[in-house]
Design a protein around this nucleic acid. Structure first.
Length: 501
RNA sequence: AGCGGGGUGGAGCAGUCUGGAGUGCUCGUCGGGCCCAUAACCCGGAGGUCGCGUGGUUCAAAUCCCGCCCCCGCUACCA
C-alpha cells in the first residue's frame, strides 16, 4: 500500500523509463535497480556485520521499489560455500561438504526473515546455474589467453593447513602455532591481472563514482598504481570447489568462484531477459575488508569475460561494540537475535542506518540503541502518531489544502538517499516530525477543534510513514493502515519506552 | 614507512568540498509553557580560544594553504 502511494508521488512511469539527472546531463536512464550484498561464509553465525550490509541492501531495495515499482528492483544476497575451511569443518562432523552447508543455510535465511529483509534471490555458490556460469567464464577467459599455468608459492603451515604471506610470519614462524614454516609450491593457474592495470586506472578515472566513498577510491587507485601481480585462481590441494573445465585436477579458487555470483544471481546464462533487464548491477554493497577484490579483481574478470561492469562498489565501515573491535574470542559480538532482542526489529534497523554515516565506522552499544529508540522513535514519532490519532478519534478531520507538508523537503531527501546518505535522510524526516509537533503545540487543535489542522497532520503522518517504509517497514505499515482507515482510532503504542540499563 | 580518515560546549555527532557572526542535531543540565499525547510535546538559558602554531592567504578561516602533536584504519590471494 505504502509502495503504491509513494510510487505515485515519485512519478514512476508505466513505460519503465524516465528522464533522470546525471552529473548535469539529462540522460535516458533505465528505471530499474539491482543491489547486492556480499555472499557470506556459512560457517559462521549471522552477526551485526552481516546484518548491517543486508539491512542497508533491503532499505535501498525498498526505496527503489517506491521509485520504480516492485517488479523493477532486484535484491540479491546469499552464501559462499566452497573452500578448504568448509571441507575441513564438514569432515570433522563426518559429513559431505554439501550436506554440511545445507544445514547451515537456514541460520542465514532465518536471520534475514527476522530482520524483515525481502530479497529476490538467495544465491548459493553450490547452485547449479552458478557452477555453470563459472565454468563457462573460466573457459572463455582461458581461451582468450588470460589464464596460464604456473606455480603458487607460499609459506605453508601444516598445523593450520593454510598459506601465509611473508608479512604474516613472526620470526619465520606460524603466527598461531609458532612452528617453523616451510616455503611450499603447488601448481596453479594464474589470471593475468597485471595486464589490466591501465584499464582499471582508466575505469576509475572515467567513473569517479565507481568506488565509494571517495577516500576508499583513493586508496585503491594508489595501490593499483604501485603495480598489480597476476593472481592465482586455482587450487589442487583440496577438492571442494568448482572444477576448471580445462583441467579437472584443479578447482577454481575462491574469488573467481564467489564474485561471479553477481551475474549468475540474475540468471546470466539461463534467462537472458532477466539478465538484460537488471545487469549491470547498480551497486555492490560490501565491507571495507573486501574492497580490493571487488574494485580490482572483479572489474578485471568482467573485462576479460566481456561482460559490462557494475556501476558502483560501495564499501562501508565496521561496527565496534562498546568502542572495542568486534571479536569472537572476547565475546564482543552481537548476533542477530541479540540485536533484535534489545528494542525490536525496526529500532535495530533504524539505529544502524541513523547512527553513523554510511561508509564510516560506527560504534554499537545497547545504551545508544535504547536512546535512539526512546527519544526518536517513541517520543517523537510514536508520540506524534498517538496524539494525532487521539485528536482525530475525538474530533474527525476536514479535507483542505495541506500547507504543513510544504515544510517537508522531499527533493532534498531524495537527493540524500540517492547519495547513500541514509543518516541524513532520517535526520531530515525527523526534522519534519519536529515541525509537526511544533505545529500542534502552536495551533492547539484540542482547544479550537479545528479539524482542518487535523487533516493536515493526518496527511503529513501518512507521508512520513511512506518515507520511513524502507527503514522501518513494520511500523510504517501499521501507521499507514491506521491513518488510511475510515474511522481513525488511537490504536496501539508503536514504540514502548525501554528502561535504560 | 607509504597511503587514507579523524581531533567542534559535559558525552556523541553534523557543519569543512562550494570561506561570511560559532550555526545545527541527539543526550545531559537549569528555568518556563502546554495539558491533545507514550511523565511524552513546545519555548528559552548556561556552557565551546572548532587539536596546537599567538603560522600563511583573505575585508572575513571550524572551513583554504604550511608546519607540528595525538587517535584510528588500509598495505593483495585470509569471507
Amino acid at each position: 500500500m505504502a509502495a503504491q502511494n509513494l510510487k505515485k508521488n515519485f512519478g514512476a512511469t508505466k513505460s519503465g523509463r524516465a528522464y533522470t539527472r546525471q552529473s548535469n546531463r539529462i540522460s535516458l536512464a533505465k528505471r530499474k535497480f539491482y543491489v547486492t550484498t556480499p555472499i557470506y561464509y556459512p560457517n559462521d553465525i549471522p552477526h551485526i556485520g552481516h546484518a548491517y550490509t543486508t539491512i542497508v541492501a533491503d532499505v535501498i531495495s525498498r526505496w527503489n521499489q517506491l521509485k520504480f515499482g516492485k517488479e523493477n528492483v532486484f535484491f540479491l544476497t546469499g552464501t559462499d560455500e566452497h573452500g578448504k575451511k568448509i571441507e575441513q569443518a564438514a569432515k570433522k562432523k563426518d559429513k559431505r561438504p554439501k550436506e554440511f552447508v545445507d544445514e547451515l543455510i537456514p541460520k542465514f535465511k532465518n536471520a534475514w526473515q527476522k530482520l524483515n529483509i525481502k530479497y529476490n534471490r538467495f544465491i548459493r555458490t553450490t547452485d547449479k546455474d552458478h557452477e555453470k556460469v563459472v565454468k563457462e567464464i573460466l573457459q572463455r577467459v582461458y581461451d582468450n589467453g588470460d589464464i596460464y599455468k604456473g606455480e603458487y608459492e607460499g609459506f605453508y603451515c601444516t598445523g593450520c593447513e593454510a598459506y601465509y604471506t611473508e608479512k604474516d610470519l613472526v620470526d619465520g614462524c606460524c603466527p598461531i602455532h609458532k612452528t617453523k614454516i616451510e616455503k611450499l609450491k603447488e601448481p596453479s593457474y594464474f589470471f593475468r591481472l597485471s595486464k589490466y592495470q591501465d584499464k582499471l586506472l582508466k575505469l576509475y578515472k572515467e567513473n569517479p563514482d565507481f568506488i565509494s566513498p571517495q577516500h576508499r577510491r583513493k586508496e585503491v587507485i594508489n595501490r593499483v598504481k604501485e603495480g598489480l601481480k597476476d593472481l592465482s585462481i586455482s587450487r589442487n590441494s583440496f577438492k571442494w570447489g568448482i572444477q576448471l573445465p580445462f583441467d579437472n585436477t584443479h578447482i577454481a579458487y575462491v574469488w573467481f568462484d564467489a564474485l561471479f555470483n553477481y551475474v549468475s544471481g540474475v540468471k546470466y546464462l539461463d534467462d537472458k531477459k532477466l539478465f538484460e533487464k537488471f545487469w549491470p548491477a547498480d551497486v555492490h554493497l560490501i565491507g571495507k575488508d573486501i574492497l580490493w577484490f571487488h574494485a580490482v579483481y572483479w572489474p578485471a574478470f568482467l573485462l576479460s569475460a566481456g561482460i559490462s561492469l557494475p556501476k558502483k562498489i560501495f564499501a562501508h565501515g565496521w561496527w565496534t561494540f562498546d568502542k572495542e573491535k568486534i571479536s569472537k574470542s572476547r565475546g564482543k559480538v552481537i548476533n542477530v537475535d541479540e540485536l533484535i532482542a534489545i528494542a525490536g526489529v525496526d529500532s535495530a534497523r533504524y539505529f544502524l542506518l541513523r547512527a553513523t554515516p554510511f561508509g564510516d565506522d560506527g560504534d554499537f552499544s545497547e545504551k545508544a540503541l535504547i536512546e535512539r529508540h526512546n527519544n526518536e522513535l517513541a517520543n517523537k514519532l510514536g508520540n506524534l502518531v498517538s496524539r494525532v490519532a487521539g485528536l482525530i478519534e475525538k474530533n474527525g478531520v476536514t479535507k483542505c489544502e495541506n500547507k504543513l507538508i510544504k515544510k517537508l523537503k522531499i527533493n532534498k531527501i531524495e537527493t540524500l538517499f540517492d547519495n547513500y546518505e541514509f543518516d541524513k535522510v532520517l535526520n531530515e524526516i525527523f526534522a519534519f516530525i519536529d515541525v509537526c509537533n511544533e505545529y500542534i503545540q502552536k495551533k492547539k487543535p484540542w482547544e479550537i477543534k479545528d479539524t482542518k489542522i487535523l487533516y493536515e497532520l493526518k496527511e503529513s503522518i501518512l507521508k512520513i510513514a511512506q518515507l520511513l517504509w524502507p527503514f522501518i517497514p513494520e511500523t510504517s505499515e501499521k501507521i499507514t493502515k491506521q491513518f488510511s482507515a475510515e474511522k481513525i482510532k488511537k490504536g496501539e503504542i508503536l514504540f514502548r519506552k525501554i528502561e535504560n540499563g
